[in-house]
Simulated assay, not measured.
Amino acid sequence: MIAAKKGSALIQEVHQTEVPYGTLAIWFLGQESVIVKGDDVTIYIDPYVSDFLDRNGPVRSYPAPICPKDITQADLCLITHEHVDHMDEGTITVFHAQNGSAPLIAPACCHQDLRRMGVSDSSILTADVSEPIELFSKLKITVIPAAHEQLEQDDRGHYRSVGYVLELNGVTLYHAGDTVIYPGLTERIAEISPDVAMLPINGGDYYRREEGIVGNMNYREAAELAVRSKSETVIPLHYDVFAGNSEKPGYFLDYLYERYPEQKCHIMARGERFVYVSPRAFVQQSS
């Protein structure tokens, strides 16, 4: 009961938050699950908030800040890949039922499972790296290949795992999804020079791979990627939900502080609203 009230209050905060030009509001739901809001567009990325007590598989370290039934007035859902902590059936089925007009963008390999979850064909869009996706006359999405732990493509050239660059409300945000650093990624992100980069830090190792846990960049690699890609602010992800696949975000923070003390960084609390403010927020817009 307490968790439900908390979730309802968080969603009410999302609905009521006004986001001036040059800013984005971001809510952290754990793992790589976030809500992004700007210019009256509310986007869910990898929403993973179903009740961990009712699931088969790994047990969450803590309950999600919201429940699937809390999610209303969503405009878009982005899925980075098919793993259960990124494309969560318990969340997606309710999300689509309650936000039927909101498209879901996902890699092509996810489409069959999304249909099985009850998502209508008309609501599913393919995460295609070939050209940007423009929605709502105010949002531009560029799909970035992700290597989790390898770059994998189907016979039509569609990537199995992706990240997303969002250009919204005068702010550019890069959500990497699950990925290691591969040749060309740093240069590609440096061309974008995101205002906000959201990067996994949990790494990977032989013993986790033996258990079927696919790895990501580690905290050192994520810190270096943020710096070398000229990301204005970096937010670490994917370190907190599963005890067997976790990392200490303090290591990430210490690494940046000791080597790149001018690199802006923010570690988000569970359920926190973080409002990113760019220099463009203070520039008067011409009519």
Score class of each variant (00 low, 15 high):
residue 14 V to Y: 07
residue 15 H to G: 11
residue 15 H to S: 14
residue 16 Q to M: 11
residue 16 Q to W: 01
residue 17 T to A: 13
residue 18 E to V: 14
residue 18 E to M: 13
residue 19 V to E: 03
residue 21 Y to A: 11
residue 21 Y to W: 04
residue 23 T to K: 05
residue 24 L to C: 14
residue 24 L to S: 14
residue 25 A to G: 10
residue 26 I to Q: 10
residue 26 I to R: 01
residue 26 I to P: 04
residue 26 I to A: 09
residue 27 W to Q: 08
residue 27 W to S: 07
residue 27 W to A: 02
residue 28 F to G: 01
residue 30 G to I: 08
residue 31 Q to A: 12
residue 31 Q to E: 11
residue 34 V to C: 08
residue 35 I to N: 07
residue 35 I to W: 00
residue 35 I to L: 08
residue 37 K to L: 01
residue 38 G to Q: 00
residue 38 G to D: 06
residue 39 D to N: 15
residue 39 D to A: 15
residue 40 D to H: 01
residue 40 D to Q: 05
residue 41 V to A: 15
residue 41 V to K: 10
residue 42 T to L: 15
residue 42 T to E: 13
residue 43 I to C: 10
residue 43 I to A: 13
residue 44 Y to L: 11
residue 47 P to W: 02
residue 48 Y to D: 15
residue 48 Y to G: 12
residue 49 V to T: 01
residue 50 S to P: 05
residue 50 S to V: 04
residue 51 D to R: 03
residue 51 D to C: 08
residue 54 D to Q: 12
residue 54 D to P: 01
residue 57 G to C: 04
residue 58 P to D: 14
residue 59 V to H: 10
residue 61 S to M: 03
residue 61 S to Q: 06
residue 62 Y to M: 07
residue 65 P to W: 15
residue 65 P to G: 15
residue 66 I to R: 04
residue 67 C to P: 00
residue 67 C to M: 06
residue 67 C to I: 00
residue 68 P to W: 04
residue 69 K to T: 05
residue 69 K to Q: 15
residue 70 D to W: 09
residue 71 I to T: 11
residue 71 I to H: 03
residue 76 L to Q: 07
residue 79 I to T: 07
residue 80 T to N: 06
residue 82 E to N: 12
residue 83 H to M: 08
residue 84 V to P: 08
residue 85 D to W: 13
residue 86 H to G: 14
residue 87 M to I: 04
residue 87 M to C: 08
residue 90 G to I: 07
residue 91 T to H: 00
residue 91 T to G: 02
residue 94 V to I: 04
residue 94 V to H: 03
residue 95 F to P: 01
residue 95 F to V: 13
residue 96 H to K: 12
residue 99 N to A: 11
residue 100 G to R: 12
residue 100 G to V: 08
residue 100 G to T: 11
residue 101 S to G: 07
residue 102 A to R: 01
residue 102 A to N: 09
residue 103 P to R: 11
residue 104 L to G: 14
residue 105 I to N: 00
residue 105 I to K: 00
residue 105 I to R: 03
residue 106 A to C: 02
residue 107 P to C: 08
residue 109 C to H: 09
residue 109 C to V: 15
residue 110 C to T: 09
residue 110 C to P: 03
residue 111 H to K: 00
residue 112 Q to A: 13
residue 113 D to P: 02
residue 113 D to G: 06
residue 114 L to S: 06
residue 114 L to H: 03
residue 115 R to K: 15
residue 115 R to G: 12
residue 116 R to P: 00
residue 116 R to A: 08
residue 119 V to P: 01
residue 120 S to A: 15
residue 122 S to A: 13
residue 122 S to V: 05
residue 122 S to L: 14
residue 124 I to F: 05
residue 124 I to V: 13
residue 125 L to H: 01
residue 126 T to S: 11
residue 127 A to E: 09
residue 127 A to Y: 04
residue 128 D to R: 06
residue 129 V to K: 06
residue 129 V to E: 06
residue 129 V to H: 06
residue 130 S to N: 10
residue 130 S to A: 07
residue 132 P to N: 01
residue 132 P to A: 00
residue 132 P to M: 02
